[in-house]
Write a protein that binds this DNA or RNA. Structure first.
Lengths: 133, 133
DNA sequence: TTCGTTTCCTACTAAAATGGTAGATTACTT
DNA sequence: AAGTAATCTACCATTTTAGTAGGAAACGAA
């Protein structure tokens, strides 16, 4: 796993929304300013999060975004997977994003990297936005 | 950390050499065939490993590559860092490859990702080629 | 009913990273 | 001298990354 700016921005935005009162709508520009994120880029990111049901939104004046579910139901693992794919260090040890890679045939290497995958997934699955606010 | 094909091939080649008798020279083509690596690509990779003193070599007939130090002195961490940079999930929590990234200001996120960095580094620093042969 | 506001949607683009290839040169062995 | 194998550097196509641009749709207020 390597965090891209997309997933980092997504986490910042979600964290910001998690700190608001539930269901208060906040506009893209407000979040963008508060967290120093390029606004048009953030727009795309929030839209992705909305389509994946982590956010809800409404348009027009006093519109904006709010969390789509409670903060303790959104884990870091889900957010990172949504933007960056596998949490594992290489796809051949990934559960959800398996692909063939060169080290595949070396059992001893696979074992080490699976242990890393397991640690990372557990850690990020067990950490929710609620844990961080 | 995300493994690239470079670092995966490097690990395969090193592991192959670690399994040979010490100081036996093996040619690029032999390693390439044994581990299914594009030979000219492997050439570059071995050269990088040689410059970093993980391999030694000699030219000409019966030339080739061998480990430059004993297998228990070569950790996976060193190899991965050489080709892929930071072991950390994002540079702002990396010790050797620090750079600014967006999540930097969020202490709670930093804490989680530093724990991951620590686990990964320890695991890969404590695993040597000798552990894998 | 119209105006401003804000989300929604898609296309585009520049730069960097990735995964190699190609070919010439140097050095060693027989 | 011939063959073999490492050394070195340049090149290249594709994919990924990190955004930008601009219009359409919807909502609220006046």
């Amino acid at each position: 796993m390597k965090l891209t700016s997309r997933s980092e921005y997504a986490l910042l935005a979600l964290l910001y929304l998690a700190r608001q009162e539930a269901d208060v709508l906040v506009s893209v520009d407000t979040i963008a300013k508060a967290q120093a994120i390029p606004p048009k880029f953030l727009e795309q990111i929030l839209l992705t999060l909305k389509r994946a049901r982590y956010l809800k939104s409404s348009k027009g004046q006093h519109g904006g975004y709010a969390l789509g579910k409670s903060a303790d139901k959104i884990s870091l693992a889900e957010v990172v997977r949504l933007f960056d794919g596998a949490l594992a260090p290489t796809e051949s040890v990934s559960v959800y994003f398996f692909e063939h890679t060169p080290i595949e045939k070396e059992k001893s290497l696979i074992r080490v990297f699976k242990e890393i995958r397991d640690y990372v997934s557990k850690k990020l699955e067990n950490t929710t936005l609620a844990d961080l606010v």
